[in-house]
């Protein structure tokens, strides 16, 4: 149960950080992506500060031999880049990505609920397509 408490606190810190930095506000995210308009560089500061702390914790975890601190063995492939590109289009259209959208559910906004619902539908579609392509293999 200790790992559950850690996960709750971790999600809480994450959600608080997204709210304080207003990454939960789509206009702020779109303002960052709008490099030719009235550019709002706030997101770069959010990501930069988060990366500094994240990088330090990866160093600490690596010293303890944590497997999660290691980069994945596989390289860049077409599905990674296609997926990231599709995500980029959706992110640019709505100004919302999964973390801020879930955190912003607290506002009760029907727009956010709609976005999250559609996101889950998209994930479900992918899941179904995966199972159709590759029937689940049962561990022997």
């Amino acid at each position: 149960m200790k790992s559950w408490a850690t996960a709750l606190l971790s999600g809480g810190l994450f959600g608080a950080g997204l709210a304080i930095s207003e990454m939960t506000n789509p206009a702020r995210v779109i303002g960052f992506l709008d490099i030719t308009g009235e550019w709002d560089p706030t997101l770069a500061f959010v990501m930069g500060a988060a990366l500094v702390v994240s990088f330090l914790s990866v160093q600490l975890a690596g010293r303890d031999g944590s497997a999660a601190a290691q980069p994945p063995a596989s390289g860049i492939d077409a599905s990674l880049l296609c997926g990231a590109a599709l995500f980029g289009v959706g992110w640019g259209l709505a100004g919302l990505c999964p973390g801020p959208a879930l955190a912003a559910l607290i506002s009760g906004s029907t727009d956010v609920i709609l976005f999250v619902g559609a996101m889950v539908v998209g994930m479900a579609g992918f899941e179904i397509a995966q199972r159709y392509r590759r029937p689940p293999t049962h561990a022997a």
Binding site: T24, N25, A84, F87, L93, A94, G95, L114, F115, G122
Partner: peptide, 30 residues
């Protein structure tokens, strides 16, 4: 929370589907 959303529902739903499919295919998000 300040939420400035200027997109109509169809636009938001399309964006949500793209984010859902894209993050799974690309194995992660922001």
């Amino acid at each position: 929370l300040t939420l400035e959303i200027h997109s109509d529902p169809l636009w938001l739903a399309s964006a949500g589907i793209l984010v859902g499919v894209g993050t799974r295919l690309g194995n992660g998000c922001t």
